[in-house]
Design a protein around this nucleic acid. Structure first.
Lengths: 103, 103
DNA sequence: CGACTAGTTCGACGTTGATCGTACTACGAT
DNA sequence: ATCGTAGTACGATCAACGTCGAACTAGTCG
């Protein structure tokens, strides 16, 4: 089995506008919430979403490039995790605030 | 002189996706930052923005309808203020986190 | 190897959204 | 009442985005 990490921005490259724009999309917010409930990460396909696989891939890429999540390959699966620490350092309280909203 | 408030969503009507989407636009984020620096409110036209008056009006409306700011008329000027308390109640930490980002 | 599975990439399509100019409204001052 | 100022509403335009299906890549298991 192979394990590899996908390219993502460094902490200092993360921009607020990009993060907010990424989070301001219902499906992506749903993904972030799913990830928040799974601290150890979750496989893309295991998140229930009302979109096709290709759209899901698109959203995950957007979130990763915005710096919201990390993805690494484990065999044929791609495990995504929230970049909690980076986000908390850059924008303390932001994630908490967002997740506090009732679904 | 006349004073009147413009229609805006009640606190319980505010939706996270809408707020995040509103904040995820550079010009609007700039407006929010200007408002954060002026707790007593600020007249629309006094915010320096790289867009025309009509575009500015559009963004202010978007932010107001999202529940991010309040606007009330004072004579011919429209004074906008951040809805800090409502946002803090709904999404504690969100605003702080966003404003913590260096410009 | 070949078949299967997980996921991505690409191109197309339709919708949304940011922007502008122009026309309009509302208020205050003269 | 008339003029000037602050700001909004409308319609048009163009770019960005979410969505999909189909083709592709990469890994696992027989």
């Amino acid at each position: 089995m192979t394990t590899r990490a996908l390219p993502q921005p460094d902490r200092e490259e993360i921009r607020v506008e990009t993060v907010l724009q990424a989070l301001g999309e219902p499906v992506r917010l749903q993904i972030v919430r799913a990830l928040a409930d799974a601290p150890e990460g979750i496989a893309c396909g295991d998140i229930e979403l009302p979109v096709t696989a290709s759209t899901r891939a698109h959203h995950l890429r957007t979130l990763r490039e915005a710096g919201v999540l990390s993805t690494h390959t484990e065999g044929t699966r791609r495990i995504s995790t929230l970049r909690r620490e980076d986000l908390e350092t850059l924008y303390p309280g932001l994630l908490t605030g967002i997740l506090a909203a009732q679904r």
